[in-house]
């Protein structure tokens, strides 16, 4: 077979069409992406426009009411803060301990693989199923009623797999020679983990924790299941009190037919998204910081 030189190749010249196709495809992909981003931006903007006029001190410092102009999110805001604090206290130690155990202590045998598989499956269980379990176990089984602690326990079950997975990734990415250096000095596993591995993995763990908590802030279905959708015009004083939370309040207002309540919902959405944005920004900042440190 004679090699080709410039012309006389066995190829038909299809380049013009191929290039056009490539350009078209590129434009299509870019267009679709930007369309999606712009569309979502538009939705958020619209919510902002609708809600901003209701967003004032009165809105933040009032209890919900039948009258839109007197309504506010005081109890919901406090409920969410309580909830987050309780969830953090319950889920962080257990989840980080689990991650540490799986990554540093357990032998990589069948049992630890089973636990891993189990955790990644738990991460995929729909939140409403956790709600049902919370209803059956915490509310009815343990007689905790429709309290903050029921909600926090349910939510902790929900977000623990997320924290475990993120923490394991963070622990896994700690260079192995740090561990070897510690072991070579005669440190035990726990001494090595506590003094070297955990501090090095801390930014990654923190990022995972923040993202998981921000998921918990927005979750609605499990709270509805355990019965948090009630009229609450007082501030909870302890973990055994009834409560409401921001997403619940939003759901409540959205499901009413009146336009005013939809706008109140939009105002509450602004508050909720602002909280989430701050948390996400913190997570991104921490990640960025620690990436720079590694360089």
């Amino acid at each position: 077979m004679q090699k080709s030189r410039v012309s006389g190749t066995p190829y038909i010249d299809n380049l013009v069409a191929r290039r056009r196709k490539a350009r078209l495809f590129r434009t299509l992909c870019a267009g679709v992406t930007w369309l999606g981003v712009v569309l979502l931006g538009l939705l958020l903007y619209q919510a902002g426009v609708d809600g901003i006029k209701w967003l004032d001190w009165q809105f933040l410092s009032s209890f919900p009411s039948r009258f839109p102009e007197k309504s506010g999110i005081k109890s919901a805001l406090f409920g969410t803060l309580w909830l987050i604090a309780l969830i953090a206290i319950i889920s962080i130690p257990i989840s980080v301990a689990t991650a540490l155990y799986l990554q540093e202590f357990s032998s990589k045998g069948r049992i630890s693989r089973l636990i891993e598989l189990n955790i990644s499956n738990l991460a995929g269980v729909p939140s409403i199923v956790y709600g049902i379990i919370g209803l059956a176990i915490f509310v009815r089984g343990f007689q905790l009623e429709r309290s903050l602690i029921s909600g926090a326990l349910t939510m902790s079950l929900l977000i623990s797999p997320v924290i475990i997975i993120a923490s394991r990734e963070a622990i896994k990415s700690v260079p192995v020679n740090i561990r070897h250096a510690a072991y070579a000095l005669g440190a035990t596993r726990w001494q090595t983990s506590w003094s070297h591995v955990l501090p090095a993995a801390f930014p990654g763990i923190l990022t995972g924790v923040i993202l998981a908590l921000s998921r918990a802030i927005g979750e609605t279905a499990p709270l509805i299941m355990i019965g948090a959708l009630t009229y609450v015009a007082f501030l909870p004083a302890g973990p055994m009190d009834a409560f409401t939370a921001l997403p619940i309040q939003i759901f409540n207002w959205v499901s009413r037919p009146q336009q005013e309540f939809h706008e109140l919902a939009a105002a509450a959405i602004i508050v909720l998204l602002a909280v989430l944005l701050v948390m996400n920004a913190a997570a991104i900042y921490i990640r960025h910081k620690s990436e720079q440190k590694l360089k």
Partner: peptide
């Protein structure tokens, strides 16, 4: 990360 209840509102 936007909560699903917000999508319900949209």
């Amino acid at each position: 990360g936007i909560p699903t209840v917000v999508y319900g509102y949209f």
